[in-house]
C-alpha cells in the first residue's frame, strides 16, 4: 500500500517525537512558517532597499521598518534577513537537505507524474498538472496567510505548541481541522462519469 521505504505510524511517531524533544532540549521548539517572513524580507530588501534600515545604538544593531509587520518584535524579521546564517533560517534550509538525504538512503521516491500532480490528486481530478499547480499556489497563499495571522503553522503550533499544552495552539488546531476536513471531503471526491 505504501511505497517502499516509508515508515509505519509507530516508528514514524517515535522518530518525530525524538526530533521534537531534542529540539526542546538543545535549542528551541521546532517552527517553520516564520522563515517565510524572513525570506520575504530578504526578497523585499533586494527590490526596495528602504524596507528596513539598521542603525547602531549603544553598540547594538537596531532595525526599523516602515512596514508594521516587518517592524514588529523589534524588527526581528529584518534582523534575521540581514543575518541569514541564523538558527531558524538554517534549520528550514536543512529540512530540504534532510528530505533529499532520505531519498538517497532508500526512502520513498516520487516518479514522473507524481512530482507534478500526486496520485491522490489524479485519483479525483485526472491528469491535470496545471489545476494541481493552481490549487497548490492558492493553498500556499492561504496557508501562509493563516499561519502568520495565527503566529505559527502545523510545526510551530501543533507539534511544538500542543506539546507545551499552549491554549493558542489548541485553538489553531481546532480552526485548521474545522475547515480542512470538510473541504477536503468536498473537493476530493469521485465525480460523475468516473
Amino acid at each position: 500500500m505504501y511505497p517502499k521505504g516509508e515508515w509505519n505510524w509507530l516508528k514514524g511517531g517515535l522518530a518525530m517525537a525524538a526530533v521534537a524533544i531534542a529540539a526542546f532540549l538543545l535549542v528551541k521548539p521546532i517552527g517553520v512558517s516564520t522563515q517565510f517572513a524572513v525570506l520575504d524580507t530578504m526578497i523585499w530588501k533586494a527590490i526596495d532597499p528602504d524596507i528596513y534600515t539598521v542603525e547602531e545604538k549603544n553598540g547594538r544593531q537596531v532595525y526599523h521598518s516602515p512596514n508594521p509587520y516587518i517592524n514588529k518584535s523589534h524588527g526581528a524579521y529584518a534582523k534575521a534577513a540581514d543575518n541569514p546564517v541564523n538558527y531558524g533560517f538554517i534549520f528550514v534550509l536543512a529540512m530540504i537537505g534532510g528530505a533529499f538525504l532520505s531519498v538517497l538512503t532508500g526512502g520513498p521516491k516520487p516518479e514522473g507524474k507524481d512530482k507534478m500532480a500526486p496520485e491522490g490528486f489524479r485519483r479525483y481530478f485526472g491528469d491535470r498538472p496545471l489545476l494541481r499547480y493552481a490549487m497548490a499556489f492558492v493553498g500556499g497563499v492561504l496557508t501562509l496567510y493563516g499561519a502568520r495571522l495565527a503566529g505559527g503553522c502545523t510545526s510551530g503550533h501543533m507539534i511544538s505548541g500542543i506539546s507545551q499544552t499552549a491554549v493558542s495552539s489548541l485553538l489553531f488546531a481546532a480552526g485548521v481541522f474545522a475547515t480542512a476536513i470538510p473541504l477536503a471531503i468536498l473537493i476530493y471526491r469521485k465525480r460523475g462519469g468516473q
Binding site: P118, G120, F121, M135, A136, V138, G139, G140, V141, L142, T143, L144, Y145, G146, A147, R148, L149, A150, G151, C153, T154, H157, S168, L171, F172, A173, A174, G175, V176, F177, A178, T179, A180, I181, L183, A184, I187
Partner: peptide, 17 residues
C-alpha cells in the same frame, strides 16, 4: 489564532501541503 487556523485549513485542503 483561531481565524488564522480556519484560513490555514482552507489552504491546507487545497494544497495538501
Amino acid at each position: 489564532t483561531f481565524v488564522g487556523g480556519l484560513i490555514f485549513g482552507v489552504g491546507f485542503a487545497l494544497a495538501a501541503l
